[in-house]
Design a protein around this nucleic acid. Sequence first.
RNA 1: CGGGGCGUAGCGCAGUCUGGUUUAGCGCACCUGCUUUGGGAGCAGGGGGUCGGAGGUUCGAAUCCUCUCGCCCCGACCA
Length: 475
Amino acid sequence: MSEGITPREEDYSRWYTDIIAAAELADYAPVKGCMVIRPYGYAVWENIQRALDQMFKETGHQNAYFPLLIPESFLKKEAEHVEGFAPQCAVVTHGGGKELEEPLVIRPTSETIIWSMFRKWIMSYRDLPILINQWCNVVRWEMRTRLFLRTSEFLWQEGHTAHATAEEAEHEARQMLGIYQKFAEEYMALPVIPGQKSEREKFAGAVRTYGIEAMMQDRKALQAGTSHNLGQNFARAFDVTFQDESGKQEYVWATSWGVSTRLIGALIMAHSDDQGLVIPPRLAPIPVVIIPIYQGPEREMVLAKAQQIAQQLKDCYQVKLDDRDQYRPGWKFNEWERRGVPLRIELGPKDLAKDQVVLVRRDNNAKEVVPIAALQERVKGLLEAIQHSLYDRALQFREKYSFYIDDYEEFKNTLDTPGGFIYTFWCGSSTCEENIQEETKATLRCIPFQNEDGEGCCIYCKKKAHDRVIFARAY
RNA sequence: CGGGGCGUAGCGCAGUCUGGUUUAGCGCACCUGCUUUGGGAGCAGGGGGUCGGAGGUUCGAAUCCUCUCGCCCCGACCA
């Protein structure tokens, strides 16, 4: 279809990387596994940040910053945590030309350094809760990397909270998952399934891990955000206690939660098509682009009107007026389609004569003529319509490829074709989970909060089970 | 780490098997000029390369040999 973009049907992986190159979202860095986020891609990230940051602050969180380098010994204080992260850590051994007395780990996540600080800050229940978030980069040495989805260094936010009671911590972990869900659905136009992670899939050092799962267009699952109830694990590891109201010393209860630049990968794989990127209006760096059309002497008049319209719309939206003379309109149409701009306004002499413009939607190519007087209103309406229709389309897709299956053979067949989310009973044993994964390459994505069926038999061992869980091949 | 693919201009490639009119070429992009502009314009002119790197074979290497570095894709670890 579009030049330089491999169709999804032909090669989904290539399509994905082609989209990123064509829309100029990111590029490969000189170091393996690292990526450069280009201005257009970073603008998407900034929009993600802005929306989430506001939601975090509305729920009482404050931003802070903790250092990149963490003493290696810190990481070793929490048993599960070391085991989980040690193999993935980059370690600094030299500084200033000399070997360091203690190697410094580049943060794979900041629980340890943050809890070492919480120890200094928390004395009594009056110091709690502490609700902190940080926007930063982390490094995890990955064997296999893919732009946005898994890179050795990535950008994210990590929330870290400390509470006086287990209930409060649990409430916080669930609340933040709720925020992620709301963000995914309302901003990314991405339907997600909130649920709990199995023991095998949970965060190293957590008591419980929650996550939101989304389905990509190749029917694979992608975890779009996680939230952990860390119990008292880190408080014990870092000896963080507080005096409660009755005067007793207690360990502090903790949570942590995060989303990363992986969300951009999710955005791409959920909505884009063979023409290029498709970005939901609420996250689009440029929601509206104006393409003026003119020949010779018409130029001044058309451009003047285009500028006027741009100015008028700018009060509400980021509008781009593409007044570059070196490209012709057809070329520009393609360019902005490739870059996923949700709405295009075409304005030429014929429109000028009739006081109208042509509007074209990126999501379905629908074209309509609108009087300039009604433009503002119509743009607003269309952007909302696009936002909703992207969500609906993604939801329908997910529903279409969600299956309730109780037979293991059927389970395997369905995973192969057509693929998707398989809701099935599972007894709760890690062994069954592991065997299923080895035999089918599907992982237990989550135990959904909303479970429809009550009782059944484990798809693997046939023992009694009371949870229908989701299995899928995943990123 | 295993399997596959690939390193030649900014990007995509041909040339490699069979060493020699190749002074290393083509398309796109880029620069200049003119004509163009409602779905990726046309013509003319122009700039741009240590052929990933190091050794070797040879009168002669992008091409053959050895070593090496890097990347992409598919698997085992993970947001």
